[in-house]
Design a binder for these strands. Structure first.
Lengths: 231, 231
DNA sequence: TAATCTTAGTGTAATATATACACTAACTAA
DNA sequence: TTAGTTAGTGTATATATTACACTAAGATTA
């Protein structure tokens, strides 16, 4: 309660504004989310949560989110996708006092991460979605909303261009779709559809990776996220 | 500049949190939005804007939005639909200082409005979307985002159950869809689709309203907004 | 060098869905 | 009784979706 008085939001009509970021990528076909250490006794000692921080008076929520992403993970990806997710204003989401969080969904290809951001450090690490539980604050909820949003975007748009490397095989792409949508897709129908929609373009080059037939490499058509219906 | 110093958000890490509400309904087949007077010289003297207000320290953004809807228009509709729209945090969206607004989309049937809320008063009035321009703050932008969201929801969900009276004819429903989606629908295909999806249920009663064949009355099936693809 | 293993890649038939389109039905009012 | 108005219906065609099983191409190893 002492720490709660610190912000005195009960007396002023002000709120502390924070951003929290659900930063996601796909590694080996599995959806991963970025966690950082949280150490806020007594409620969250030695805990973990989503990257985030306070919004400065001189910046918009979006600018704060971008700053914090670059802060906590030395990320400088051209291919990062970024959208506002939801604003969380439950009174007790932060036990220290009234903190309202504007949450963002950000996704980027694993291959775009610097070496030090791929490995676990004391600044942060990547976990699969089922592992991202018992997070500090309401970050379990934010994670759930983010996964839901990403799933919905994956179904109706080409957002996966931001989760794939520039060049990929259709099997790799299918695996990522299956991982995010939690469903099995028919290989032939999946390929037929993407090619008919001209969502992907064959590069005329092959990827060899193992004792089997090499796979054609593809890239996404166009340059931005477009509306298409995948399944 | 004097009024800007009043909030002193540059010095504290606090922001003023507001909610703005895009409250929409359909009258005679036309989509309408609720405006209220705004009188904030020097920037917005004798102006108009969306209903809104500050979030109290003791309430969530959603609670504030509901309170403000009931405040400004004596609305007590069972059928109101309500969702968070977007959080607007541009630095200069309010010339008085840093005010971050959590915007909400709310829709309800015209028939649910009390008489005094259907008529123009000094508390508020209804205008069609094209008329809702040159609003105070960034309310033109909020309106545009709200219309876009409603249009998207109309395409993929049964949100229109919250814009129609309990009982309606299929012609009336089609008119509302056409008005919101800004497209012409084929009468036969529209009816076929809604009936096949079992989205609407005939009541076995007719509505007489003019010198022509009376129309069958329908209601929406189920009780909540569901995902269906209309067009 | 032949056999085996693994993943890549392909086509078709059946079903379901979407589209385009024009007349009759039921009522009122003149 | 006629004219005017909106309600209501069916079918043929095109398009999209689904289900399904084998061959191709390379690496490895016996």
């Amino acid at each position: 309660m002492k720490s709660q008085r610190k912000f005195a939001t009960e007396h002023l009509r002000f709120a502390i504004l924070a951003v929290d970021i659900a930063l996601m990528t796909v590694r080996d076909g599995a959806l991963m989310i970025r966690l950082t250490p949280v150490n806020r006794p007594p409620h969250f000692p030695n805990s973990k949560g989503l990257p985030g921080g306070l919004i400065e008076p001189s910046e918009t929520a979006e600018e704060a989110a971008l700053r914090l992403i670059r802060d906590r993970a030395t990320i400088c990806s051209k291919h990062i996708y970024f959208e506002q997710l939801y604003t969380f204003s439950e009174l007790n989401r932060d036990p220290r006092g009234r903190v309202v969080a504007v949450a963002y969904l950000a996704v980027l290809p694993w291959e775009d991460l610097a070496k030090e951001d791929q490995e676990d450090t004391n600044k942060g690490w990547w976990v699969t979605i089922p592992e991202a539980t018992k997070l500090a604050y309401d970050h379990d909820l934010i994670t759930a909303v983010a996964v839901q949003r990403l799933r919905s975007r994956a179904r109706y748009t080409t957002i996966l261009r931001h989760l794939m490397p520039t060049e990929f095989t259709l099997s790799e792409l299918e695996t990522v779709y299956e991982s995010i949508l939690k469903t099995d897709l028919d290989k032939r129908n999946f390929r037929k559809k993407l090619l008919k929609l001209k969502a992907v373009i064959p590069l005329g080059r092959k990827k060899k990776h193992g004792a089997h037939r090499p796979a054609e490499l593809y890239r996404f058509a166009g340059t931005k996220v477009e509306e298409i219906e995948i399944i």
